[in-house]
């Protein structure tokens, strides 16, 4: 398993938000964590990226404990994140934003350039706008930039908080296509979503409710059954 979470509890101050979450992700999988607003999905992301501490339970990445690793250390281990709200720096140019993706690893200028060309090959829309301000991009383009930037870090596991956030269905569809392509290149994905559209590309889905994960199903099965609707209504 690339990522194993066992009975993880955490929260803010004295307030527990995650009451024992367990899930695992194998190398090369695309996993969706689905759930309505306020169930602790973002807290789960913050836990994995090291922003909030683990209270009890266990989080292992590639077989080693992540307990004390800082966010930047985790990134350098290959556990990268596409933060909530995209995390594009508006005062930087597109190219500078892209380059930030390499902050967590030591790489020669030539390799960075090669990576950049490869990533820009996936997102040709960005190629012509490298010197433009990132704030001039549309929402969809910013999300592409966020994905492209994450790819520059050569992640092993990419955590994505709401890829579909605020985007038109058409654009979301295209982005998920890219996710599928990147998986074929060897990247593993853990995608937190509110919308079920992510199920079309993912292999397995966890449904979260009230700080716990309730269902673990193959995404295709979940799409075909009534279970999802039922779990949302409950």
């Amino acid at each position: 398993m690339l990522l194993e979470i066992e009975d993880a509890r955490t929260g803010y101050g004295r307030l527990e938000v995650l009451h024992g979450v367990s899930l695992n992700v194998a190398e090369g999988e695309i996993i969706t964590v689905l759930g309505p607003n306020g169930t602790g999905k973002t807290t789960l992301m913050r836990l994995l990226s090291g922003v909030v501490p683990l209270w009890s339970g266990r989080v292992r990445f590639d077989g080693s404990d992540l307990l004390k690793a800082t966010p930047e250390k985790r990134a350098s281990l290959g556990l990268c994140q596409l933060p909530e709200g995209r995390g594009i720096f508006q005062t930087l140019t597109v190219g500078e934003n892209l380059h930030l993706g390499t902050a967590s690893r030591r790489a020669s200028a030539a390799r960075v350039r090669a990576d950049r060309d490869r990533v820009l090959g996936v997102f040709p829309e960005l190629a012509g706008r490298l010197t433009a301000s990132a704030s001039s991009l549309s929402g969809g383009q910013q999300q592409m930039l966020a994905l492209a930037r994450a790819m520059m870090g050569r992640p092993r596991l990419l955590l994505i908080d709401e890829l579909s956030f605020g985007l038109a269905p058409r654009i979301v569809h295209d982005l998920f296509e890219v996710v599928r392509e990147l998986r074929d290149d060897g990247v593993t994905f853990l995608i937190v979503e509110q919308q079920a559209s992510a199920l079309r590309v993912s292999d397995r889905t966890y449904v979260m409710r009230n700080g716990r994960n309730e269902l673990d199903r193959a995404s295709a099965d979940l799409l075909a059954s009534d279970e999802l609707v039922a779990s949302y209504l409950r």
Binding site: G11, Y12, G13, R14, L15, V17
Partner: peptide, 8 residues
């Protein structure tokens, strides 16, 4: 306790 609640 206060900080915890504020943060939440």
């Amino acid at each position: 306790r206060l900080v915890g609640r504020l943060l939440a």
